[in-house]
Design a protein around this nucleic acid. Structure first.
Length: 227
DNA sequence: GCCCAGGGGGCTC
DNA sequence: GAGCCCCATGGG
């Protein structure tokens, strides 16, 4: 799947922004997980919560021996809720994990290879039809668990690219995603690292409260400055 | 004690 | 189909 770069100038600018971030922090080795299945569990658990809380829940599940399809299908919903309590909205998330794992088990014999061994957009539609999986979660699963070339955007992406003067505040998920996918090569390694870099910058330098941190590698380009 | 953090579902109009 | 509310923990 070759990317079509509609605008060479935008492509160059995007790669420049990528370089500014990458040269500061180096490779981020995303996603922080031992298996593809763990990526999927983490993608659900990280919804609207910091990653710190997610690692605790993942370790709880590992210790309990249920960090696999059969484990999650077999454990009681109440026990699962206890194990992931620290990730907020735990009742909903327990249900979400069970819905996904039950789907994987009944439709694909629990095999992620079978699940991912199809057309990217066919898998995406299927993911979006499942309870608890929206666009960001679906794309995170496709890119980081399935190694499919799809660009993941999130609230950090909106915030940072708004401050760079590239996006407007009310841009939709789909519009942001299209912007990156229209102007970058469709390379899952590049998409992986690009999103990871945005997350790193967002996390460290671009909180909602502080308009701009001077330490941010993108600070020279930002429209909003302190003072 | 207060604020807010990497979302998504469901309802309303 | 945009705008709202709900979910409901933990760290700074």
């Amino acid at each position: 799947m070759g990317g079509k770069c509609l605008d060479k100038r935008i492509h160059k600018d995007l790669m420049h922004i990528f370089r500014l971030m990458y040269d500061r922090t180096g490779p981020r080795h995303w996603w922080p997980a031992q298996t593809s299945f763990e990526v999927i569990v983490g993608a659900v658990l990280t919804q609207f919560v910091s990653w710190r809380n997610v690692t605790t829940a993942i370790e709880n599940m590992r210790t309990e021996g249920i960090l696999n399809v059969d484990g999650i299908c077999g454990v009681s919903e109440e026990r699962l809720e206890e194990l992931i309590r620290c990730t907020r909205f735990y009742k909903q998330k327990a249900k979400k994990l069970k819905v996904f794992c039950t789907h994987l088990k009944t439709q694909y014999s629990g095999s992620l290879d079978l699940f991912f061994g199809r057309d990217l957009y066919e898998i995406r539609r299927e993911l979006l039809s499942l309870y608890g999986i929206g666009e960001e979660t679906a794309d995170s699963i496709l890119l980081y668990a399935g190694e499919k070339p799809i660009f993941v955007v999130d609230s950090y992406t909106r915030r940072i690219f708004c401050r760079l003067g590239i996006f407007s505040e009310d841009i939709s998920y789909g519009e942001m995603q299209k912007f990156f996918m229209d102007n970058l090569e469709h390379d899952s390694d590049l998409f992986n690292e690009f999103h990871a870099q945005i997350d790193g910058v967002g996390n460290r330098f671009c909180s909602a409260k502080t308009p701009l941190c001077e330490e941010c590698p993108l600070a020279p380009r930002c429209l909003f400055r302190k003072g």
